[in-house]
Computed example of a mutant assay.
Amino acid sequence: MKQQIGNIALVVANYDDAIAFYTQKLQFNLVEDSDLGGGKRWVLVSPPNSNGTNLLLAQASNDEQAACIGNQTGGRVFLFLQTNDFWRDYQLMKANGVVFNEEPREEAYGTVVVFQDLYGNKWDLLQLNKNRLQQAPNK
């Protein structure tokens, strides 16, 4: 059996603001932006050369959803953006005004730094070291 996660829903305050952040500051691709009627849209963004997992930008439609914007995981890191060139992406994101919570650091598994999206959700920018990549199961 083969399975994969296709989309991860991210509750946002505004479709267009979120699209601008992900495509301009993080250099993601806008995969799809379809009008579903009634003010809803199907908006998918994805890092360049991604493996097929997308972020589904879901604009909050009620107070309960709006209360989760920026804190979808209770203050923990929410998503992990893996890269093959940490310093290239870190410098580009920094130049684009992305907010970082710390200085980059070397860990046993690779180089990492925590940053925030436009709503304050925490992300890791991460480049796994070669030993870690070799240990990953190849399925």
Score class of each variant (00 low, 15 high):
residue 49 N to I: 04
residue 127 Q to T: 05
residue 139 K to A: 14
residue 2 K to H: 13
residue 68 C to R: 12
residue 51 N to D: 10
residue 44 L to C: 04
residue 10 L to P: 00
residue 126 L to G: 02
residue 103 E to I: 10
residue 85 D to K: 03
residue 7 N to G: 00
residue 113 V to I: 08
residue 13 A to Q: 09
residue 88 R to Y: 11
residue 64 E to P: 00
residue 79 L to K: 00
residue 23 T to P: 04
residue 70 G to M: 09
residue 101 N to K: 13
residue 101 N to M: 14
residue 62 N to W: 06
residue 78 F to Y: 14
residue 35 D to K: 07
residue 136 A to M: 15
residue 90 Y to G: 07
residue 116 Q to L: 13
residue 97 G to E: 03
residue 120 G to C: 10
residue 43 V to E: 02
residue 5 I to Y: 09
residue 28 F to V: 05
residue 112 V to E: 04
residue 42 W to E: 01
residue 71 N to C: 04
residue 89 D to K: 09
residue 7 N to A: 11
residue 15 Y to K: 02
residue 106 E to Q: 15
residue 131 N to F: 03
residue 65 Q to K: 07
residue 67 A to S: 15
residue 137 P to Y: 12
residue 102 E to W: 10
residue 8 I to S: 05
residue 84 N to E: 12
residue 4 Q to F: 11
residue 58 A to N: 14
residue 5 I to C: 10
residue 47 P to K: 01
residue 111 T to E: 08
residue 3 Q to K: 09
residue 109 Y to T: 11
residue 39 G to K: 03
residue 73 T to Q: 10
residue 132 R to G: 01
residue 65 Q to W: 03
residue 54 N to S: 09
residue 45 V to N: 06
residue 111 T to S: 12
residue 138 N to G: 01
residue 57 L to Y: 07
residue 72 Q to C: 05
residue 139 K to M: 08
residue 139 K to Q: 15
residue 43 V to F: 07
residue 20 A to T: 13
residue 108 A to S: 04
residue 60 A to V: 06
residue 19 I to W: 05
residue 7 N to K: 13
residue 119 Y to A: 14
residue 50 S to T: 08
residue 4 Q to K: 13
residue 114 V to K: 02
residue 133 L to V: 13
residue 71 N to T: 07
residue 116 Q to Y: 01
residue 85 D to T: 05
residue 6 G to F: 11
residue 136 A to G: 09
residue 60 A to T: 04
residue 130 K to E: 15
residue 15 Y to F: 10
residue 37 G to N: 09
residue 73 T to H: 03
residue 130 K to L: 09
residue 88 R to I: 01
residue 78 F to P: 00
residue 92 L to F: 12
residue 38 G to C: 01
residue 119 Y to Q: 11
residue 122 K to L: 12
residue 121 N to A: 03
residue 131 N to Q: 14
residue 112 V to F: 01
residue 90 Y to R: 13
residue 112 V to C: 06
residue 112 V to N: 01
residue 52 G to W: 07
residue 58 A to K: 06
residue 81 L to Q: 03
